[in-house]
Design a binder for these strands. Structure first.
Length: 294
DNA sequence: GACCAGGTAGCAA
DNA sequence: TTGCTACATGGT
């Protein structure tokens, strides 16, 4: 076993593990008390994920982020949790808007995530018309049913399935897992990736709007889900997914940004939320509104 | 028992 | 292009 510690006080803008993992951005981590999205902030609980066959466990106690892993996880954790983002700078550059400022102030330490592309893509296909807690239980079921199992220091961990593994699933099986009408979308998208027809990671090389367009070729992926994958996996920090909460925010706080179509409204709200880091502002506002401003 | 949840595909006009 | 509507499921 390899272990390590990071000092969050050394990170520009600090870090809050709970906010980062439980703000509805990622569905590829598990909380080891099994009660993610339960509402209350748990003290020093472990979270785990599996990346490229390696188990990674992390927990935060005060300013210390502690980890245990099957590998040297320090660089992986920095990447997955965007620990090298200069949060102070991002907040400083945010527009002087009351709602945005309020959200940034209320949830300091919340960072974006950088999920592995395939897992992120499937997670957000599952997310359509679903609450975050159920999206999480769906991805957990997929991992248990179709992913590799890895033992580490006692317990068994489940990797999110590879495209090949998920492509072996049938629509009927996934409906039994509770995916509902998303079941065929997941199967067909997994097949597309497994067959080499397309890969979400390829969008990384494109310009933002071309990248969004590229991702919509996957079944079950429209503009909103594409924006989520760009923001939470591919490093497009300007992406602003227009979900129900952000649409409400536009209606109540930025009505002039409603331009009818997704593409034009997206352009307007991205500008309003600060351009290159608009996705960061979006994530804070989303979490702020969804949790009732706690 | 409605209503809703990080929407999309398919089809008509 | 734009504007419907059907689509599963579980929690409140």
């Amino acid at each position: 076993m390899e272990t390590g510690k990071l000092s969050c006080a050394d990170l520009a803008g600090g870090f809050d593990l709970y906010l980062t993992l439980e703000s509805g951005q990622t569905y590829l981590w598990r909380r080891e008390d099994g009660d993610m999205y339960g509402g209350e902030r748990p003290p020093g609980v472990w979270y785990s994920t599996v990346v490229d066959g390696d188990v990674i466990r992390v927990r935060q106690q005060g300013d210390v982020l502690e980890w245990e892993s099957t590998t040297d996880a320090d660089p992986i954790i920095r990447r997955l949790l965007c620990l090298d983002d200069d949060l102070d700078d991002i907040v400083a550059r945010a527009p002087p808007d009351p709602l945005i400022r309020e959200a940034y102030d209320a949830h300091r330490g919340l960072r974006l995530v950088e999920d592995p592309p395939f897992g992120c893509l499937i997670s957000f296909i599952c997310s359509a018309q679903m609450r975050v807690s159920r999206i999480h239980s769906m991805t957990a079921s997929l991992a248990v049913e179709y992913g590799d199992t890895i033992e580490f220091d006692g317990p068994t961990y489940h990797a999110f399935p590879t495209p090949d593994q998920l492509a072996t699933a049938t629509e009927a099986e996934l409906r039994d897992l509770g995916l509902g009408y998303r079941a065929p979308y997941v199967v067909r998208t997994a097949e597309m990736v497994a067959d080499g027809e397309a890969h979400p990671g390829k969008a990384r090389d494109l310009e933002y709007e071309d990248a969004r367009e590229y991702l919509t070729q996957f079944v079950g992926v429209g503009e909103k889900v594409a924006d989520c994958v760009l923001l939470f996996s591919l490093g497009f920090e300007e992406a602003v997914p227009l979900d129900t909460w952000i649409k409400t925010a536009i209606e109540e706080y930025f009505p002039d940004c409603d331009r009818g179509s997704y593409a034009e409204t997206s352009k307007a709200i991205r500008k309003r939320l600060g351009g290159e880091y608009a996705g960061y502002a979006q994530t804070y506002v989303f979490h702020h509104l969804r949790t009732g401003g706690r």
